[in-house]
């Protein structure tokens, strides 16, 4: 079982994984739901502990749901933040140099690249 291996990963990495699940979700998630969407195998109690720690740090909000809590990322005033993020993005976009120090996960694709990628994904059976 990979269970033990993932439990022993650094706490920061586990917090990041849990946070990624909450942000990817469109509604608050209970520890059980988070556990199911995680890409790592963690015990539910571990997930609950991580969520409590994130709540103590003020990174997530929670509200009562049934006998436990449902968690969601803490948002600042949504509109103001969204605007700022967009402005910063366009600022960074103007700088073609951005990729140089900041190693981006994926680069832009040419139309050819796009076709090749779709073929590769299909050939891989998805």
């Amino acid at each position: 079982m990979t269970d033990a291996k993932d439990e022993r990963r650094p706490a920061g990495e586990l917090e990041a994984s849990v946070m990624a699940v909450l942000w990817a979700a469109d509604a608050p998630r209970t520890p059980g739901q988070v556990q199911q969407s995680l890409g790592v195998d963690l015990a539910r109690t571990t997930v609950t502990t991580i969520l409590t720690r994130l709540h103590d740090k003020g990174v997530v909000d929670r509200r009562r749901q049934g006998r436990g809590y449902a968690y969601a990322p803490a948002r600042d005033v949504p509109d103001a933040h969204g605007l700022t993020a967009r402005r910063m993005h366009s600022e960074l976009d103007r700088d073609g140099d951005r990729e140089t120090v900041l190693a981006r996960f994926v680069a832009q694709l040419s139309p050819d690249d796009e076709r090749v990628l779709r073929d590769l994904l299909e050939a891989d059976g998805r």
């Binding site: 990041a16 990624a20 960074l92 951005r98």
Partner: peptide, 28 residues
């Protein structure tokens, strides 16, 4: 560009080493 990205990441407390930016554009 680095300072701008750093400022953007510092806008909210990180979870572990992860900073999430609320944006409609997929980027990492």
């Amino acid at each position: 560009a680095y300072r701008s990205a750093r400022a953007q990441a510092a806008r909210r407390p990180p979870a572990g080493d992860l900073c999430v930016v609320d944006s409609p554009r997929p980027d990492a």
